[in-house]
Nucleic acid binder design. Structure first.
Lengths: 114, 114
DNA sequence: CGGCTATATGTCGAACCTCTAGGTGTCAGA
DNA sequence: TCTGACACCTAGAGGTTCGACATATAGCCG
């Protein structure tokens, strides 16, 4: 049924992708692996979400792509942040922090709070 | 255009609604007000999101509704949590905490992490 | 050689959620 | 009388994610 564990990232995917790319230019396949790795298997980015997201971010001018050789010797599309992308990432992170604390306020609220 | 401030993270609304109702049975209009109030104006729940969400939660058996008189003397639909709703809320909160720390791992990661 | 797995990119449609924009009706106060 | 707050609701548009599929190369093993 509705297993919450598999259904996860909703509006956070863009931010997470931007953040991973900010650590250094990478190709899509590696982004998915790194997100899974860094989050200790919590995030499992599906290809059907990943590639459309990358194209979206590129269309918005936040990423730029370049074909290069990957670590394994194959051709892969390496993405790097543009200046706009850098600013966007910072804005999204700031917004995430605010969101987090706002959710925290609600979760820790009690009946006396209103 | 895409002002992130107004966009609340998709998927969190259900949890927030369940949490507010867990503080005591309330009607929809008050839920929106309280969310805004508790979150210090960060969350602005629009009616077009709120009422469909309430119906969704009721359909899933997490809420039960009852017409009663509101504080102002008018008829209003008061929602309360069912047992299933209580469990659902706890599950969603637990999931949120996990999501938060997973995002935290990514945001605080550096190049040496892989 | 044939089959399998990992690497690597991509598309398409269904499903889902939120927003905008509208609608109904009551009641208090200016 | 008109406005604003209270209180409910729906329809349609838009955006995101998922699941399934499609493609192609490289390496390994029997």
């Amino acid at each position: 049924m509705n297993d919450a564990r598999t259904e996860l990232l909703k509006g956070t995917l863009d931010m997470l992708i931007l953040k991973v790319i900010a650590l250094g230019p990478t190709h899509g396949y590696a982004i998915a692996q790194r997100l899974q790795q860094i989050s200790r298997d919590f995030f499992q980015v599906h290809q059907g979400s990943l590639y459309p997201a990358l194209h979206r971010l590129e269309d918005r001018g936040w990423l730029q792509a370049e074909w290069r050789e990957s670590e394994t010797g194959r051709e892969a599309k390496f993405y790097s942040l543009t200046k706009k992308g850098q600013r966007q990432m910072e804005a999204e992170v700031a917004n995430w922090e605010q969101l987090c604390s706002a959710v925290g306020l609600v979760l820790r609220s009690s009946e006396g709070d209103f």
